[in-house]
Design a protein around this nucleic acid. Structure first.
Length: 788
DNA sequence: CCGGCATTTGTTTTT
DNA sequence: CAAATGCCGG
């Protein structure tokens, strides 16, 4: 055990703790160990993919706690995703053997800022308008809705200044802690264009609503620290150690925030990899990591270069690709792992063939039919796509062949309309002054209270200086509305009065109350009567929401939790292939990784290049680097010659990144059913051509017009019918079913067979029809002949 | 005010 | 090809 430099100043009890062995240090390499043990003063860990960055960081926290250098509450540890925070907590727990009392200040930048702001809310604002600790957090949806209202109120041209674009613009400023007053010249033009008053109006409206948006969370915190040195001091003193994961992705606001807090003890430790900076579009500044030594004079810089994750082949392919970027710090990653498989490259006729091939390949891995790999567990396989719309092709395909999958980072549970509606009911019940919630649900379900009625209510509320729910009460009392609207509004107000009584009763069950709210408001009925195919799913989600409530003592606690953690734990429901975006895959690793859709325009994304030029292209390249380095043993890159875009088939060029891959680490595959001659031409271009004239678009076009490619197209389209897929027909599995049978499927639940063709069943699940292989279907009901 | 129908619009990545 | 928006007639 290293001598603790501070040991003289520590009380005996803590020196005793420090003298305990630290077995968790044994598994670290010397560089990691140095980083972990360099406890005092600023430290920057510059590290490549798979070098155990997060591991070093968590070990460091465990070490701090073991040595008694800080109590859990005195350590500030910041991550980018809630998932990473959760993971770190469990890892620290595991390192220390058992229960550490929770680390209250381990979380995302945003969640930690929420905590800080709740304690000092009253210091945010101006004059008599200030934030209350109970403030709500607007998500992008709310933000855009609010901006739309303001744009209308200011009589601005909605076409010229779409709310979503403004939201993005405002977000950008807040990420850099800029207000319109100190905008750089270039952006001033945009600001003047939309009338100047809008930003101020927006901020004021947020204050009156007692709400903040995502950007505010950070900006308010920074401004709070700048304007109140006493408050800053308090937190500087408190956080004796600060640790930051993924430092390369910090934006200016986060950087300022960190620097302010770290100036107390100057014990800040950041880890980051400049090659993995993929959030530039959200304001991330790689400059932050490059400036670290300047910001913290005397900082120790430690480079972690031994990779523990991937094989040399994978590492070689990724390193070769990223070398095309300029302005890197540069690292030499090495590993002592076995050489392994080359990165595979394969071109397909179209996106459907690509999805089909990947599906078959996964089944082969699963069955252990890939000799060099052995059987690969589905959990160890991931498909990483550039844009979320690419996921659908795989979902469709995997559903038909019955391959279990999980979409990570798809539409988030708490962002779905039905969940947000339900939460708006709860919010309004708990805090009757939540006007945003009121506006969301006043006419959901339809109560005959549309724009006009809302205007009357808003008027009444404004004149009396009360929230909308109170305004509604006044409207009812003074009968400012007529007919059905008035009756419904009275009922609406009465309902909330009744619910509120129960909400305040500490003995009443909040779960029952929540169910009642959804029932009595007619919200559940609304979806029950809805005949659209996704209505049953939405009802399920509502049930799941109510179930989630059970874990909390009351609704208040639930709502606060949700504000902090907008994602739901992904239940580990057994063996599933993961489908996610490249951004979502940050920090993860899988034995086998599929990287489909490497086509120019899609990846690198056209918009990224149009809007940010070379900078954009380099960020895309870093994304490609991140993608390849997620793989432990095998990475498989693919592209399609044709892809459907807005319902139109469009021919695609292979990604320029493909030509940048170092040939030595690449193996070119031939798709099934295609033979040397025809295929060779296209592939020659994809692989053998690497490095020659890769930006010559004309040359590429020639390849696609070549006889070989044409022949390949013809063959591919022959194979297009699903029956021809290379899966043997399992007629036996289908034989036990007949049309009309009740059956069940692991993913879709219960349904009824509507048709049978070979071993493929057409089944109605609820209101939607699916075509599924018989092997994945179970009979339901007692009168069935169940084989086996 | 609401439902239905026609049109148009858009798709990067996320706390 | 969707979803979102716009427009019209009850």
């Amino acid at each position: 055990m290293e001598q603790n430099p501070d040991s003289d100043t520590l009380p005996l009890s803590q020196r005793a703790i420090a003298a305990r062995p630290a077995p968790y240090l044994d598994g670290l390499n010397p560089a990691q160990r140095a980083a972990v043990e360099m406890l005092d003063g600023p430290v920057l860990m510059l590290a490549g993919a798979g070098t155990g960055k997060t591991r070093a960081l968590t070990t460091r926290i465990a070490h701090l706690l073991t040595l008694g250098k800080a109590r859990p509450g005195q350590i500030l540890a910041v991550t980018f995703t809630n998932k990473a925070a959760r993971e770190m907590k469990t890892r620290i727990g595991a390192l220390l053997g058992e229960t550490v009392e929770g680390m209250p200040w381990l979380g995302t930048f945003h969640s930690i800022c929420v905590k800080l702001l709740r304690r000092h809310a009253e210091l945010i604002g101006n004059g008599d308008l200030h934030l209350k600790p109970s403030f709500t957090i607007l998500d992008t949806d709310d933000q855009i809705r609010l901006l739309k209202q303001l744009i209308q109120a200011e009589n601005l041209d909605e076409k010229r200044w779409p709310a979503r674009q403004l939201a993005h613009l405002i977000d950008g400023w807040k990420n850099r802690c800029l207000s319109p007053a100190n905008l750089p010249k270039g952006e001033m033009a945009a600001f003047d264009g939309w009338g100047g008053r809008l930003y101020a109006a927006y901020q004021e409206r947020l204050l009156t609503l007692n709400a903040v948006d995502f950007g505010d969370l950070l900006m308010h915190c920074v401004k709070l620290f700048q304007a109140h040195p006493d408050v800053l001091k308090q937190w500087q003193d408190r956080f004796r150690y600060i640790l930051v994961d993924e430092y390369q992705d910090t934006n200016v606001a986060q950087y300022m925030w960190l620097r302010l807090l770290a100036q107390g003890h100057r014990n800040i430790c950041c880890v980051g990899d400049d090659d993995q900076s993929i959030y530039g579009w959200r304001g991330a500044e790689v400059g932050n990591i490059l400036r670290f030594e300047q910001d913290f004079p005397g900082a120790q810089v430690i480079r972690l270069e031994q990779n523990y994750r991937s094989t040399p082949q994978i590492l070689g392919a990724a390193s070769g690709l990223i070398e095309a970027n300029s302005g890197r710090l540069g690292k030499t990653l090495w590993t002592d792992a076995e050489q392994g498989e080359k990165v595979r490259l394969i071109g397909h006729w179209d996106s459907e063939a690509e999805a089909r091939w990947i599906g078959e390949e996964i089944e082969a891995f699963q069955g252990g039919h890939r000799a060099s790999m052995g059987a690969v567990n589905l959990n160890g396989i991931a498909i990483l796509v550039r844009a979320s719309h690419q996921m659908r092709a795989f979902e469709d395909r995997f559903l038909t062949i019955g391959l279990p999958y999980r979409v990570i980072g798809g539409p988030r549970f708490y962002e779905r309309a039905e969940i947000r509606d339900a939460m708006a009911y709860f919010r309004l019940m708990i805090s009757p002054s939540d006007d945003l919630a009121f506006e969301r649900i006043i006419n959901t379900p339809k109560r005959g209270l549309g724009d006009k009625a809302l205007q009357v209510i808003q008027m009444a509320a404004r004149q009396n200086g009360v929230p909308l729910l109170e305004g509604a009460r006044i409207v009812v009392e003074e009968k400012q509305l007529g007919g059905k609207g008035l009756v419904n509004l009275r009922e609406f107000v009465n309902l909330f009065d009744r619910w509120r009584v129960d909400a305040l009763d500490p003995d009443a069950s909040h779960v029952e109350l929540a169910e009642r709210v959804l029932d009595e408001s007619g919200y559940t009925a609304m979806w029950q009567n809805d005949k659209s195919p996704d209505a049953p799913g939405r009802l399920d989600n509502l049930k799941e929401l109510v179930k989630a409530l059970e874990e909390f003592d009351n609704l208040q606690g639930f709502l606060e939790h949700i504000a902090l953690v907008m994602d739901r734990d992904e239940g580990d429901s057994g063996e599933e292939v993961s489908i996610m975006t490249l951004h979502g895959a940050k920090g993860l690793e899988f034995p086998v990784v599929f990287l489909p859709g490497w086509e120019d325009g899609l990846f690198p994304n056209q918009r990224a290049m149009d809007e940010n030029g070379t900078k954009g292209l380099e960020e895309e390249r870093r994304l490609a680097y991140v993608g390849i380095t997620r793989a432990e043993r095998l990475a498989i890159i693919s592209f399609a010659g044709n892809r459907r875009l807005y319902g139109q088939w469009q021919s695609q060029m292979p990604s320029r990144f493909i030509d940048e891959l170092p040939e030595a680490h690449i193996e070119i595959l031939t798709p099934p059913g295609l033979y040397g001659g025809g295929y060779g031409t296209a592939m020659a271009f994809a692989g053998a051509n690497a490095g020659t004239d890769m930006h010559d678009r004309a040359a590429r076009a020639d390849v696609y017009n070549s006889p070989g490619w044409k022949r390949m197209q013809a063959r591919a389209s022959e194979r297009r019918t699903p029956k021809a897929a290379a899966v043997t027909i399992d007629a036996e599995a289908a034989a036990k079913f007949s049309v009309g049978d009740r059956v069940s499927h692991a993913k879709f639940g219960e349904g009824q067979i509507m048709g049978i063709a070979e071993d493929t069943l057409t089944i109605q699940f609820g209101t939607s029809f699916k075509t599924v292989k018989a092997a994945y279907i179970q009979p339901v009901g007692g009168d069935q002949d169940v084989p086996f």
